[in-house]
Design a protein around this nucleic acid. Structure first.
Lengths: 200, 200, 200, 200
DNA sequence: GATGAATGAGCATTCATTCAT
DNA sequence: TATGAATGAATGCTCATTCAT
């Protein structure tokens, strides 16, 4: 009884997530969502204010989850480099595990109502800042190179993470955890304090 | 005469690019495009088969340009690391210079007709393979670490490049060329053969 | 106990009256009515058969009240002109006191079910006929001019009364009783047997 | 060619007027209008911005016409009482001739967008003021009684006019011109300077 | 008595596209 | 070349009403 208390609402969210990821927010009709969820439009509008509200809920779920996990790793024990590596590997793994959410995130952001858009951007910024602070801390301590702005490093890394949705496939050779290790290794390596041996 | 042979066609493409980047393909109506270009719908349908065709043309332009530039750097003179660095910095710079194209690329890909979609994916794959071959070549020569698959390195790097559109601003502190240098440095550093000094 | 026997029912009628007057029958949703009354839809459908039924009840209340008052004045003592003046002033005063009912009456009449519509029209006609009989009586007695059909006089006067809802405001300079005196004076004056001093 | 230049637009306006008068603005669907006019919805939205716009056009047409006619009579030659009588009879006659417009006017006013609503009210007020000035002028000159405010006289008279739509029928015994004469007579009589012969 | 989840038909509106001119 | 009237299918959404509880 407890877990399927609102089966209709949950089913709607699940199908909406799947469809928005598959064909985009604008190209998914409310009719398709409710048909997939096996209910009528009226039921959807009983639980959600609008199609936008459905999208809004999806964003909220993603943002909450990611922030919680990052905080957990950032505030954890162990050396800084290890914590950053763990956080980086984790965000890749969880992104892969919720690839539909990730596909939706950037592709459909502009479909949010202006206010929701702003609040999502702000929440995202807080997330990035939290991650950036780890880099800055390492730069101050001399653990990481500081000739590349921490901001750029974060944008560099999260660009990679956010694009997982465009190429990662569960049928491919690597698991999410494996990609996470690789990405985290690349990040940490690129932060090593000595300059690359570039000619010139 | 040669360059403004078809000013209407060019104006339509330019305004479509701007609008698709601003509000997305699905949320831009043909009416908005033709109004912005100062022509009528009939004119648009004279030069383009459909709204999809307009999008298709934009993709073609981007793909052609990027492939040309990559080939130029890949086939150029100098040591491999230098060529890869130059190509990496260049794709960032040109992406920033054509940020609208970049914003459209991934957000609107799913709006292409299935066949066009496939051909764009194929062309994109060729581009990535060309870039990847540079990495593989360096890994074989021992210039680059080989414990991370070249494929992953390329996906890692291009994720960063493709996400420039979500954060880069011409009003920000860094020029496209500067971001290009930073990104190329990060890429080359992450490819250095020795392992990162991770504890444990 | 007697008067607040059905407080929910009364509250629903009161809020429905207010809302129908404010935005019209069609533009008021059942949800708005029940929210305003602080109950649920189920409660409304317990007391009323339908949204139409709610409207029907409002009409019934108005018609009953107005007919009662008119009968009282028509059958009262005193000279005819005096009784007509009193009845005319009274209908203005009570209309102003129940201005919401008046606003609803003509604006929403066409929303009644055909049978209800007919019965309301019939009741209204009886009311007009009762009023008209006073005029006819005065015309026969020579108290009132008879070159204007009594029917027209009644329509003339009640047009004015029914339109009070479009302009009368409690915040204005005149009370309902004052407007009633003026209207009754105008009516009685216009019925004076001698012709107006029109040129030609 | 000249008179049926926009037959579709005119047909849409004509059918909309008829249907709005018959069942009210809210109860008339766009589909019913376009079906009646023999076109498709797309055609309607080519000529009008919205269903509201259709209503707006109807109001504009009525307001323009009535103001023109009133001005013509008010500024005409002849004694004041005669001009007022002519204007009063004319507004009744033209109201009867365009009874559908009249039915729509008050019943659907609240369906106009707030700004349109305000502008219609303002235009209506100007019309009433113009009429009222004629009454005031006569009161100053002693032609009309002045113990009833001119404002009240105008509201009294136009209430009657605006309610023609609820009872007048072309099949009835009186023509519009005849009703106009009666109404104008009643108005002028009620303005005669001597008090009605009321008992007491 | 009363709830509120769910229905299903209907609504105004949008829009890519066509085609006679 | 280019116009713009017209199409028709689809879209997001509303709402009076029902019914199991």
């Amino acid at each position: 009884m407890t877990q399927d208390q609102e089966p209709v609402r949950q089913r709607l969210l699940a199908e909406a997530t799947r469809l928005f990821a598959e064909r985009g927010f604008e190209s998914t009709s409310v009719q398709e969502i409710v048909t997939a969820a096996g209910v009528t439009k009226g039921a959807m509008y009983h639980y959600f204010d609008s199609k936008d509200d459905l999208l809004h809920e999806i964003y909220g779920r993603v943002l909450r989850m990611q922030m919680e996990r990052l905080t957990h790793f950032a505030d954890g024990p162990g050396p800084l480099a290890e914590r950053l590596h763990a956080a980086a590997a984790d965000v890749v793994r969880t992104t892969v595990e919720n690839l539909d959410d990730s596909k939706i995130f950037f592709r459909s952001m502009h479909s949010l109502a202006p206010d929701t858009y702003k609040s999502v951007r702000a929440e995202r910024r807080r997330y990035h800042e939290c991650f950036r602070d780890l880099v800055t801390e390492g730069q101050r301590a001399g653990t990481f190179r500081d000739d590349t702005p921490a901001e750029i490093v974060v944008d560099f890394f999260f660009g990679s993470v956010h694009h997982l949705g465009t190429w990662y496939s569960a049928e491919g050779p690597l698991s999410g955890a494996e990609v996470g290790e690789h990405f985290a290794d690349l990040l940490l390596t690129s932060l090593r304090p000595d300059r690359p041996a570039l000619p010139g």
